[in-house]
């Protein structure tokens, strides 16, 4: 690579740092708003759910890491726990662009919910990827928890063991469960940020 060009790129990378900081959502700050259509054609915004906790789950049903948590029912259990015990809204978000892995039609998405016995409040079809980019969602599954006041309280992985093996689930800390329990008990969420592991979101 041309000497000068490389240095230009390097400097650009350094300077881009300020912008990248602005892009990433921050714990303790208002979560980015969104306006995305669900499988029934209804538009959902974050502001619609003021007064309720919101869990965001980025997904791609063909990703092995997503399968890891759906196949033994771990994700579905957490959806039920969040909605039934914590009165939370659970939004499953698909940011795969049309034609890429994980992209589904509304009918296919509903069929996946049925066949996997999943229990989200709604499945959002973020074909443009705008919502995913606003949250800096990188992988599937990538999890976020927003409190009743619209403040981001948790972001990161679904659990503490970045493996693709379902057998590893029982030994791992389930971060979303722990965060919801801490919030319910009026405690601080800990950890607030963890490593999101999985497949790249197909923007």
């Amino acid at each position: 690579m041309n000497h000068r060009l490389f240095r230009l790129l390097a400097a650009a990378a350094v300077l881009a740092f300020a912008t990248s900081l602005a892009a990433a959502p921050q714990i303790g700050q208002p979560a980015p708003d969104f306006s995305v259509v669900d499988t029934a054609g209804d538009v959902h915004s974050l502001s619609d759910f003021a007064g309720q906790k919101v869990v965001l789950e980025w997904t791609n049903h063909d990703c092995p890491f997503v399968v890891k948590h759906y196949q033994p029912g771990n994700m579905q259990d957490q959806q039920r726990m969040a909605r039934n015990e914590h009165d939370a809204v659970w939004l499953t978000v698909i940011s795969s662009k049309p034609g890429s892995q994980g992209h589904v039609s509304p009918e296919q998405a509903d069929e996946l919910t049925r066949s996997r016995n999943a229990y989200p409040t709604a499945v959002l079809l973020d074909e443009s990827g705008d919502m995913g980019r606003a949250y800096d969602a990188r992988v599937t599954p990538h999890m976020y928890i927003i409190d009743e006041d619209g403040i981001l309280r948790y972001m990161g992985g679904i659990d503490s063991n970045p493996s693709r093996n379902s057998d590893d689930i029982p030994g791992a800390t389930q971060f979303v469960v722990a965060a919801l329990e801490n919030l319910a008990a009026g405690r601080d969420v800990d950890p607030t940020v963890t490593r999101p592991y999985g497949c790249t979101v197909k923007y």
């Binding site: 990378a13 350094v14 740092f17 990248s20 900081l21 990433a24 959502p25 921050q26 800096d136 990188r138 972001m155 990161g156 950890p191 940020v193 963890t194 490593r195 999101p196």
Partner: peptide, 10 residues
């Protein structure tokens, strides 16, 4: 060496 840190670092 300069590189931004990951917003998801723990």
């Amino acid at each position: 060496i300069a590189q931004p840190l990951s917003p998801f670092r723990t």
